[in-house]
Computed example of a mutant assay.
Amino acid sequence: MERVKKIFWLIHLVVWVLFTLLVVLQLGGKGDVHWRSTTAGFIANCLYVFYSHFYLLTRYAGKRKGGGYWLQLAGIVLTGPLLFLLFHHGPFEFDYYAMHLVTSVPIFLVLGLLARVTETLVLNTIRKEQLEKQAVETELNYLKSQINPHFLFNTLNNIHTLVYKQAPAAPEAVMQLASLMRYMIYESNAATVPLARELDYLRDYVSLQQLRYKNSPVVDLQIAGETAACSIAPLLFIHLLENAYKHSPARLEPGDLKVRVEIQEDTLAFSVHNPIGRKPDVVLEAPGGIGLPNVRKRLTLLYPGQHTLDIHSTGDIFTVTLTIHGLHAPAHERQAQLLHY
């Protein structure tokens, strides 16, 4: 905000310097021996009227303009031409006073009004955008804070089972969890992370979950396209994968969970397919829990108008497909689009 105000003052300075040069060129070429004092008086008159009204409007900004404003405005109008006459050689001439009273004074009163309105409009627009950005960041931080306890709760339950059974894989599970938490606590604080790093995080998660199964890897992860040049908002995919585990049968065969990541130009498609597990006399909970509503909200905030989230079930297979467009859009364009939405 202070930077914008400094820019406005620089604009003021440049405009007044150019205006002064124009007046000097106009009056200096007429052969008047007193052109310097005439120029100084005219510039002083213009500056006084312009900035007196400018600051008067600043003082009454957001307030009803009562008698105090109009009384002070009348004072500016009546005293404005006097500065010109102070520099004028010779006795007081009412004609000069009246001429400036009906020409330069109204013009610079209006210019002061336009300058004040313009600056107020720009500053208020910037303030509004900053407040909206802060609100979005606050909500995103809140949504991300929901991820850590939810994920930690699920994973600690798995490790507890391994420890209870005195499984040799328990120490490895603890190290896997430490690696995952390091990513979640430190690296995921950035607005975006390399897609390759986010996929490494998913691989670590899959490795940790695989400790629950005796079969060969139950997750079939396939990646197509170039991931090195792409960045993505962190922790978008983990809930989709968690839901696949959560709502699958207790016994999974190798490759039952299919995860596909495909990058084409600036479009990313992430899909998860899992068999639906059903227990007798228990109604299947709608897939999502905390996860899918969280993902939907974050996508709305991070990729407004740039994503689709398709969820459908064929009865035995549940599929979630997330498509994100415009991965390479500049940050300022994404921010402008976010504020628009």
Rank of each mutant, 00 (worst) to 15 (best):
H89V: 10
F92D: 11
M99Y: 15
H100Q: 09
H100A: 09
H100I: 01
V102W: 03
V105T: 15
P106V: 04
L114V: 10
L114Y: 06
R116W: 09
R116M: 04
R116F: 10
T118H: 08
T118Y: 09
E119Q: 14
L121A: 15
L123Y: 05
N124R: 15
N124P: 04
Q130T: 10
L131Q: 14
K133H: 12
A135L: 14
V136D: 11
T138C: 09
Y142W: 10
L143F: 07
L143G: 07
K144C: 11
Q146G: 12
N148G: 02
H150Y: 14
H150L: 13
N154L: 14
T155H: 06
I159F: 05
T161K: 11
V163E: 07
V163Q: 05
A167Y: 02
P171W: 00
V174P: 00
L177Y: 01
A178G: 06
A178D: 00
L180P: 02
M181E: 00
M181I: 13
M184L: 12
M184D: 00
M184R: 04
Y186Q: 10
S188L: 01
N189T: 12
A190R: 14
P194D: 08
A196M: 02
A196R: 11
L199R: 04
D200Y: 09
Q209A: 07
R212F: 08
R212S: 13
Y213W: 08
K214D: 13
S216F: 11
V218W: 04
Q222V: 15
I223K: 04
